[in-house]
């Protein structure tokens, strides 16, 4: 407890502490505290709901990046069985910023591919904070092709600040690796479902995001640039809360925004207090949404599936056609 509290979560934590204290005091003495706890618990639930209903876009960014928010491997553990992780791009090395492998969802084999962040510093160093190098994207593509070979659907999970910007990444063709995935995902002959479970950061996110269905958790964000980057470029200030808030508002990065813009298909509701408050509940929501989407997609013939996927992405964007 007490680790990584977001500013707006403090009233929630305070109330939780009060309830906990009451419980403790009850253990020592033979006092009946249930009557006292009940209203507090109710208050806690409504407080959580209130706070989370009114999150600003910047607060959603914080929730999306929360270190206790469920990651790809958490969802694999919580809503799938028979998991076996596969590694490497067969060309350069293994990239732990992306986790991938076979699993079973509701008894059916699926290929799971997702960005994987770390919970502590040590794991984050190993997983590069969920920011893949080209070899991560090439591993992802290799396994998508493998899934296609055995006609197994692909489930991707998006949770990255972005693709890694560094010397080695550039030398080994970060751009090409991302571009190749966009190209191949648009023509993969098995169903693809992408879910934005945390932060969807730019091209590094999209490289796992060309899908028949794009789902997004309620408090996830998906953006062309980080709010910090946007604020730094436009207003020369990527640090202050005001400028980050301005950028977060302007960029339209929340799930309802993206639904309105036609970029995502469905919003997955999160438990009160966010997915990190109750990972099991979030996993149940995800499980049911994935099963339902797969049921529908499995019925569609490959040619039709591809045509629809392509048409969906071809329709994205807004232009004005004038008689100039």
């Amino acid at each position: 407890m007490g680790t990584t509290l977001l500013e707006f979560e403090k009233p929630i934590a305070e109330l939780e502490r009060q309830i906990e204290e009451l419980r403790k005091s009850a253990e020592g003495h033979e006092v009946e505290v249930a009557a006292e706890i009940a209203p507090l618990s109710a208050k806690l639930e409504s407080l959580k709901a209130d706070i989370y209903r009114n999150l600003t876009p910047l607060q959603r960014v914080q929730v999306a990046r929360h270190p206790r928010r469920p990651f790809t491997l958490d969802y694999v553990r919580l809503c799938m069985t028979d998991w076996i992780e596969l590694h490497g791009d067969r060309a350069f090395r293994e990239d732990a910023a992306i986790a991938a492998g076979w699993a079973r969802l509701d008894g059916e084999t699926v290929m799971v591919i997702g960005h994987q962040r770390g919970r502590d510093t040590k794991e984050n160093l190993r997983r590069n904070f969920g920011m893949p190098h080209p070899e991560g994207y090439r591993k992802a593509l290799r396994l998508m092709k493998l899934a296609e070979k055995f006609q197994v659907p692909v489930l991707t999970f998006i949770d990255t600040p972005g693709a890694w910007a560094g010397l080695g990444a550039e030398e080994r063709g970060q751009s090409e690796a991302i571009a190749r995935n966009l190209y191949e995902m648009s023509r993969l002959t098995v169903p693809i479902i992408a879910t934005v479970i945390g932060e969807g950061g730019s091209g590094g996110a999209l490289a796992l995001g060309v899908a028949d269905r794009v789902l997004m958790f309620e408090h996830s964000v998906y953006s062309v640039i980080t709010v910090e980057g946007c604020a730094a470029i436009l207003w020369k200030d990527g640090k202050s809360i005001e400028m980050r808030e301005r950028a977060a508002d302007a960029l339209r990065i929340t799930a309802p925004d993206l639904k309105r813009l036609g970029v995502i298909d469905d919003i997955l509701p999160e438990p009160a207090g966010g997915a990190h408050a109750d990972p099991e509940a979030a996993a149940r929501t995800l499980h049911d949404a994935l099963v339902e989407a797969l049921e529908t997609l499995k019925e569609i013939k490959p040619e039709k599936l591809l045509r629809r996927r392509r048409e969906k992405f071809l329709a994205m964007g807004q232009v004005v056609e004038s008689d100039a």
Binding site: V224, A250, L251, V263, F313, L314, G317
Partner: peptide, 10 residues
């Protein structure tokens, strides 16, 4: 915003 990002996929 994200619509520009989607032009990459398009």
């Amino acid at each position: 915003g994200v619509l520009s990002l989607m032009q990459m996929a398009k």
